[in-house]
Design a protein around this nucleic acid. Structure first.
Lengths: 138, 138
DNA sequence: TGTAATTGCTCTAGTGACTAGAGGTTCAAG
DNA sequence: CTTGAACCTCTAGTCACTAGAGCAATTACA
């Protein structure tokens, strides 16, 4: 049995974040002390690891909530888990595609100016003012 | 002189978003009618295009604010504009790197399960529960 | 055992970039 | 001159936290 501060140290999740997760229904402490302080055990430590990993992979609190429900009921089919992971993967791929297009554009934008000129001649500003100058669309 | 609805149609920026930008100090209408309705001209149309383009490239409202200030003072050096663009580019590249790592991980995660098994055997859940199974770190 | 420092508690509000809705007013067309 | 669409302001909600106030409990050390 350990405190929220100890749990925070062991998982690398900040104390207020742990309390926020509790509020969202993701982890509840096993017990409280007489003085109302949270006391956690090993299952909570693992659960928070699960949550942290999910967040690092970009899953929403809602998605993690569903995954926890599945995790707690190992007899159900894992179709839902796969669906969540697939949808997250699609999301990530879409973001990568969009960001890659932006990278191209920004590279062109940033390269056009050496920072020495005056703003009136600046290509960064010109490119932003006139969308026609863009190579790719976005 | 045209209304906010007309400005919205011409730029593709939603009406409440235009009002939000005004609140943030990015665009103010030239005048108002006697009945207090906003009336815009060509300069605002261009300014909103500038803002929209900036947002599409991922610049923050703050960054766009600075770029507008430079745009309005063409006699200043464009070092600041270049700096903003460079920093945005670095941001985008960092995000791409992170998302690419996530993509690898998620692909492995999603492929490991065909959705037919029961949750107790599900690799998606196993991988989330045990970080050790991850190939890359994140 | 006393006390001081640290850690904990709850509650509210702020972040960024919007979006949604209430409740009321003005404008343009017929 | 009336109707209906578009406009106005203001407040609150989104997501995943983060910050702070004001107070209580725990722990370390003398």
């Amino acid at each position: 049995m350990f405190s929220i501060g100890e749990l925070s140290k062991r998982t690398g999740v900040k104390v207020p974040t742990i309390r926020y997760y509790e509020q969202m229904g993701l982890i509840a402490p096993l017990e409280r002390t007489e003085g109302n302080q949270r006391r956690y055990g090993k299952p909570e430590l693992e659960q928070l690891g699960f949550i942290k990993h999910g967040r690092e992979l970009g899953f929403s609190i809602d998605a993690i909530s569903s995954l926890i429900a599945l995790h707690d009921h190992p007899d159900r089919t894992c179709a839902e888990a796969t669906e969540i992971a697939q949808s997250q993967l699609a999301d990530v791929r879409a973001k990568i595609a969009k960001l890659t297009a932006l990278e191209t554009e920004l590279t062109r934008l940033a390269k056009a100016c050496d920072g020495d000129g005056i703003a009136g001649d600046c290509n960064v500003l010109a490119a932003l003012a006139d969308h026609q100058l863009c190579a790719a669309d976005h």
